[in-house]
Nucleic acid binder design. Structure first.
Lengths: 137, 137
DNA sequence: GTAATCCCTAGTAATTCGATAGGGTTAATG
DNA sequence: CATTAACCCTATCGAATTACTAGGGATTAC
């Protein structure tokens, strides 16, 4: 299940991408428009800023803005920051690999075999889709 | 993240599929061999039996056995029973559809758009893979 | 009748999630 | 230079979920 955090984050990014304007977009505006608890959204956007997806401007008339082309923002990267590993088990994760305690032979493990395929296909989708695709611009 | 329940369930099914024998396979044997807490595994196999994947025999020399051909057991079906919906958000679920509270227009929703694709690809894999494929027979 | 096995329900400890609280800091504005 | 509007940051907390555990009941082989 996708966490609310990720869901809200994606919606916010899309909102910012769709708002064609020079000035930054405020958290309050996004929260209201997308029906997201404002304080929660604040922390999510903070994370996205620290991860290099967003820039921010403080003080009055401040807000958040994209610092990359929408076509440069891959969903795989956003998901990794907000949701964590894309793989459903650590033993098939590219970026967060971890051996199973129980598993004797990874190569023989049926779960491994299946989840590798799921990961590959999910990754294909998440790498193909950029914020540009989602925002529809 | 895949739950332990599902992981254990898949491993157990694979174990049973790989054990070529006429007599049923005991929970204790599977638990020991696959390093799964036995009581936990008991409840998982019970679920799988009630869902029509396994048959059981009670009493001494009892245990569990497959009641379908391994090639007839699709991973998508097993996952739905053990893990729940395959979709990452209810609004793109085929079997457990639910509208988002917040979402005004599903068609415009970027999360929806992305998760439909993820679901389609995951489903493709899970429908293609049967227990036969996982067990490697 | 005894031991081995599945059947079933309840409970519980640990973790994660979703959100809130409560301010601190910075910048525009008149 | 005071006020206000915004982001910045940490801590905390209740609810839900997960991963088990406990404790026995029912059934069958021998």
């Amino acid at each position: 299940m996708l966490s609310k955090k990720t869901k809200y984050g994606l919606k916010a990014l899309t909102y910012i991408a769709r708002s064609e304007r020079d000035s930054p977009v405020q958290v309050g505006e996004i929260a209201k428009s997308e029906k997201i608890p404002q304080k929660f959204l604040e922390s999510i956007l903070l994370t996205l800023r620290k991860s290099g997806f967003l820039g921010s401007k403080k003080g009055k008339h401040g807000g958040y803005y994209l610092i990359k082309e929408t076509s440069e923002i891959k969903m795989a990267d956003v998901l990794r920051v907000l949701e964590g590993p894309i793989a459903m088990v650590p033993c098939v994760s590219l970026n967060f690999y971890e051996k199973c305690d129980d598993c004797v032979d990874e190569y023989q493990c049926s779960v491994h075999k299946l989840m590798i395929q799921v990961r590959d296909n999910t990754l294909k989708v998440l790498r193909n889709n950029t914020l540009k695709d989602l925002a529809g611009k």
